[in-house]
Design a protein around this nucleic acid. Structure first.
Lengths: 160, 160
DNA sequence: TATTGTTATACTCTATAACTATA
DNA sequence: TATAGTTATAGAGTATAACAATA
């Protein structure tokens, strides 16, 4: 998880698979956190706004996409609305539902954060050979897809 | 960050790479979260216990390792102590400091979580060819090390 | 004066349970 | 009855600022 391996200061012991993946995950996560924090946002909030870039989901749909309880999403949306990042629109067909969508300011911020994070990722990978960078992208994509498949997640639901 | 489009910026990593890395990070993070949650722990708590496997740091040192404020760590340690995962020992040399260390129960839990998480990672990568699994480990390790180097983190402090 | 750790305070994020208004 | 969403409540996790004890 974090401590422990037979680490040597000289020669730098290679990380084992678990540590390499875990720490890579922490590095990317911390990077996302810093990028979001520069706009006074949490990762979850930035993630929700990212989802809203091309969708107008209901609270329930958002909860499924974020794997959170609907009450958690309700609060998340309320705080985002208070800051004028999103708006709630009564659903036309089902009067119990609301559609959540980005405001102009929310869209602007989301675009900015996405660009900044992309630049950070590029910097993170700048030390890799093009060959390794491509390999990482390809293999990471494979792992993500197989993980979704294992969890029975339909791509068309997630990506649209 | 999450949504779809192949929008592109000059000099910025293609969205494919950014999405692949981000989503891989989320997959691993969610996996850690589930594993920790099975023991009623958060990721941060599990991470702290992992750090304590081979160290007896002060609160300040823990704060540096976890990149948290000392007051956050103080609360984290207090909650962990209340659950009998760690203990605080007055430091011998500096009477302002305390050393934080695992209890027997904390050590047992940490070992269990580490093993479970290792099994999850193995399952996650089981669909990869051995060649790709090795490549992922090697490239992820490279990225992590260069990230640490860029942030001026000394390996001997982190790994020991 | 400076540092270590705790506490007071104030947020965000999260879940469960109870509620409302629709369906 | 069942579902969509909110609210009440409780708790973890986080940071800032103020504090006590020690250096």
């Amino acid at each position: 998880m974090e401590g422990g391996r037979p680490s040597r200061h000289e020669g730098v012991a290679p990380l084992d698979t678990m540590d390499a993946l875990t720490q890579l995950s922490f590095v990317v996560h911390a990077m996302l956190e810093r990028t979001a924090a520069e706009h006074d946002m949490s990762i979850v909030l930035a993630r929700m706004l990212g989802i809203l870039r091309d969708r107008r989901p209901t609270v329930n749909e958002l909860a499924r996409l974020l794997e959170l309880d609907k009450s958690s999403v309700s609060g998340l949306v309320a705080r985002a609305e208070r800051r004028n990042f999103v708006q709630r629109t009564p659903s036309a067909d089902d009067r119990r539902s609301v559609r959540v969508s980005l405001t102009e300011e929310g869209r602007r911020l989301t675009t900015a954060i996405t660009a900044e994070f992309g630049a950070e990722v590029a910097a993170l990978l700048s030390g890799l050979t093009p060959r390794d960078a491509d390999a990482l992208t390809r293999i990471a994509g494979t792992v993500v897809l197989s993980s979704m498949h294992r969890h029975g997640i339909d791509l068309s639901q997630v990506r649209e």
